[in-house]
Amino acid sequence: RKESAFKSMLKQAAPPIELDAVWEDIRERFVKEPAFEDITLESERKRIFKDFMHVLEHEC
């Protein structure tokens, strides 16, 4: 699924995404990734990013 691929892309980011990361600041790192391009709505990208950050916070 496209959403899973997007989350995997975020999870495998190098360097890892920090807990205090803001979408607008890290977005540039992913613009050339196929998983990024597959999610065409920016609002959807932000939503998935927020979900990812929520999970990340609870893993720590």
Score class of each variant (00 low, 15 high):
R1A: 07
R1P: 15
R1F: 10
R1T: 15
R1C: 15
R1S: 15
K2R: 13
K2C: 01
K2G: 07
K2T: 06
K2W: 04
K2Q: 09
K2A: 04
K2I: 06
E3M: 03
E3I: 07
E3D: 04
E3P: 01
E3K: 04
E3S: 03
E3H: 02
E3A: 07
S4M: 15
S4K: 15
S4R: 14
S4E: 15
S4H: 08
S4T: 15
A5L: 15
A5T: 15
A5R: 15
A5E: 15
A5Q: 15
A5I: 12
F6V: 01
F6E: 01
F6H: 00
F6G: 01
K7T: 09
K7V: 10
K7N: 12
K7L: 10
K7S: 09
K7I: 10
K7Y: 07
S8Q: 14
S8W: 12
S8E: 13
S8N: 15
S8K: 13
S8T: 14
S8D: 10
M9A: 02
M9D: 00
M9V: 03
M9W: 02
M9T: 02
M9S: 00
M9F: 01
M9C: 02
M9E: 01
M9K: 01
L10C: 02
L10D: 02
L10Y: 02
L10F: 03
L10N: 01
L10K: 00
L10S: 00
L10I: 04
K11R: 12
K11S: 14
K11G: 09
K11N: 09
K11M: 11
K11Y: 11
K11C: 11
Q12Y: 07
Q12I: 06
Q12V: 07
Q12R: 06
Q12L: 11
Q12W: 04
Q12F: 07
Q12K: 08
Q12E: 07
A13H: 04
A14G: 05
A14E: 11
A14L: 11
A14R: 10
A14S: 14
A14I: 08
P15S: 04
P15Q: 06
P15H: 09
P16W: 03
P16R: 09
P16C: 07
I17M: 04
I17C: 02
I17D: 00
I17W: 02
I17H: 00
I17F: 04
I17T: 02
I17V: 09
E18K: 12
E18S: 14
E18T: 15
E18A: 14
E18W: 07
E18L: 12
E18I: 08
L19P: 11
L19E: 14
L19N: 10
L19M: 13
L19S: 13
L19R: 14
L19A: 12
L19G: 13
L19D: 10
D20Q: 06
D20S: 11
D20M: 10
D20I: 04
D20P: 06
D20C: 08
D20N: 07
D20W: 13
A21L: 04
A21C: 06
A21H: 05
V22M: 09
V22H: 13
V22E: 09
V22C: 14
V22Y: 05
W23D: 00
W23M: 00
W23P: 01
W23A: 01
W23L: 00
W23H: 03
W23V: 02
W23I: 00
W23Q: 01
W23F: 01
E24M: 05
E24T: 07
E24F: 03
E24R: 04
D25F: 04
D25A: 09
D25K: 04
D25M: 06
D25T: 11
D25P: 02
I26V: 04
R27L: 02
R27W: 01
R27P: 00
R27Q: 04
R27T: 02
R27I: 01
R27F: 05
R27N: 04
E28N: 15
E28F: 06
E28Q: 15
E28Y: 11
R29M: 08
R29N: 06
R29H: 03
R29E: 03
R29P: 02
R29W: 03
R29L: 07
R29Q: 12
F30D: 00
F30G: 02
F30Q: 01
F30C: 02
F30M: 03
F30S: 00
V31R: 12
V31N: 10
V31F: 12
V31Y: 07
V31D: 06
K32A: 10
K32R: 12
K32Y: 06
K32I: 05
K32V: 07
E33Y: 13
E33P: 02
E33I: 06
E33T: 11
E33W: 05
E33G: 01
E33N: 08
E33C: 09
P34Q: 12
P34A: 10
P34K: 12
P34N: 13
P34C: 09
A35L: 02
A35T: 05
A35V: 08
A35Y: 03
A35R: 08
A35S: 09
F36K: 01
F36H: 02
F36I: 01
F36Y: 08
F36P: 00
F36M: 06
F36E: 01
F36T: 01
F36G: 01
E37F: 05
E37D: 13
D38I: 06
D38L: 14
D38T: 07
D38F: 14
D38P: 05
D38S: 14
D38N: 13
I39G: 01
I39P: 01
I39L: 10
I39M: 07
I39T: 02
I39A: 01
I39W: 01
I39D: 02
I39K: 05
T40Y: 13
T40W: 07
T40R: 12
T40D: 15
T40I: 12
T40E: 13
L41G: 13
L41H: 12
L41A: 12
L41T: 12
L41K: 13
L41R: 14
L41V: 13
L41P: 11
S43W: 05
S43T: 07
S43Y: 03
S43P: 06
S43R: 11
S43C: 06
S43N: 14
E44H: 04
E44C: 06
E44S: 06
E44L: 04
E44T: 13
E44I: 03
R45D: 00
R45L: 00
R45V: 00
R45K: 04
R45Y: 00
R45E: 01
R45F: 00
R45G: 01
R45N: 02
R45C: 00
K46R: 13
K46I: 15
K46M: 06
K46Q: 08
K46V: 12
K46E: 12
K46L: 06
R47N: 09
R47Y: 04
R47L: 06
R47H: 06
R47Q: 14
R47V: 06
I48L: 13
I48A: 04
I48F: 05
I48R: 00
I48E: 03
F49P: 01
F49C: 01
F49Q: 00
F49K: 00
F49H: 03
F49L: 02
F49M: 03
F49I: 00
K50P: 00
K50C: 14
K50G: 12
K50W: 11
K50H: 13
K50F: 10
D51C: 08
D51E: 13
D51R: 06
M53L: 13
M53D: 02
M53C: 10
M53K: 12
M53Y: 03
M53A: 06
M53S: 04
H54M: 13
H54K: 15
H54A: 13
H54N: 11
H54S: 12
H54I: 13
V55Q: 09
V55R: 10
V55W: 11
V55M: 10
V55K: 15
V55H: 09
V55P: 12
L56T: 14
L56Q: 09
E57H: 15
E57I: 07
E57S: 11
E57Q: 11
E57G: 11
E57K: 13
E57F: 06
H58S: 13
H58V: 10
H58L: 11
H58M: 12
E59N: 14
E59R: 09
E59T: 11
E59Q: 14
E59L: 05
C60T: 08
C60D: 14
C60K: 03
C60A: 05
C60E: 13
C60W: 15
C60M: 07
C60S: 12
C60R: 10
